[in-house]
């Protein structure tokens, strides 16, 4: 392994991780500076005030494609979402496995599994790029950050796919590209839409709390009326 690759796999990643963590701390501090609205709800016939249930339902919503019309009607898109994010998880995992537990990649089935997941995620990334570019509705809501983040992730998947076997017999360029891109991501992510996973717990928490208080979440699908 060259010094450059070693530096990219270790020192560079660690610096980038610390930077990302620092920016995230600042970001969360910034978010918490805004006041959280209070909930005052009177008693009434509908005493189904269940903020906790609402919050849990809201957080779990993403894993229940049947619970939202938008995912139920677009199962193909939902499937893409699942694969794409599994690819992200696998690629992030890979960025730790290669430098800190490379022996895991001597397991053939694991390598195959990672390559399948990341390879399909890369394909989904391509589909998403095409959708974002070709649909007028998607173009209308897209910013340069949206295009850049998506293309960058797709390219990252591509190099992650190549990096999975952790094989340098044909050169180090693919591993180097993967780790340089990973480091870039760590620095770029807090400033881009990719940081949405940081906000997800907050947005879903507050929506779930509000809807739970009002008895909307968990959504009713035709069960018996609540006791009056």
């Amino acid at each position: 392994m060259s010094d450059v690759l070693y530096f990219s796999e270790h020192t560079l990643q660690e610096i980038a991780l610390v930077f990302m963590g620092l920016v995230y701390v600042l970001r969360i501090r910034w978010l918490l500076r805004f006041k959280a609205s209070q909930e005052r709800q009177p008693t009434g016939a509908r005493d189904s005030r269940a903020p906790l249930k609402g919050i849990l339902y809201s957080w779990a919503n993403i894993a229940m494609p049947w619970s939202m019309e938008s995912s139920r009607k677009h199962l193909w898109m939902y499937g893409q979402f699942v694969v794409f994010h599994l690819g992200v998880v696998a690629s992030i995992g890979l960025s730790f496995i290669i430098p800190y537990a490379p022996s895991l990649l001597e397991n053939g089935p694991l390598v195959l599994l990672l390559q399948v997941v990341i390879g399909v995620a890369c394909f989904v990334g391509l589909l998403r790029v095409i959708r974002r570019v070709s649909s007028p509705h998607m173009r209308a809501i897209s910013s340069p950050d949206d295009y850049f983040s998506l293309i960058l992730l797709t390219v990252w998947f591509f190099f992650a796919f190549l990096a999975v076997p952790n094989d340098t017999s044909a050169g180090e360029w693919h591993l180097l590209a993967f780790f340089l891109l990973t480091a870039f991501f760590l620095v770029y992510v807090p400033f881009s839409k990719i940081s949405h996973y940081l906000y997800y717990p907050f947005t879903r928490y507050y929506l779930g709390k509000s809807m739970g208080y009002r008895g909307v979440y968990p959504l009713h699908t035709g069960s018996k009326a609540k006791a009056v």
Binding site: L31, L32, K35, A36, S71, K193
Partner: peptide
């Protein structure tokens, strides 16, 4: 409010 800020920063433009 925190809720509004969450909604303002949280959109990923997925189009769903």
């Amino acid at each position: 409010s925190r809720q509004m800020v969450g909604s303002l920063v949280g959109c990923v433009h997925c189009g769903l």
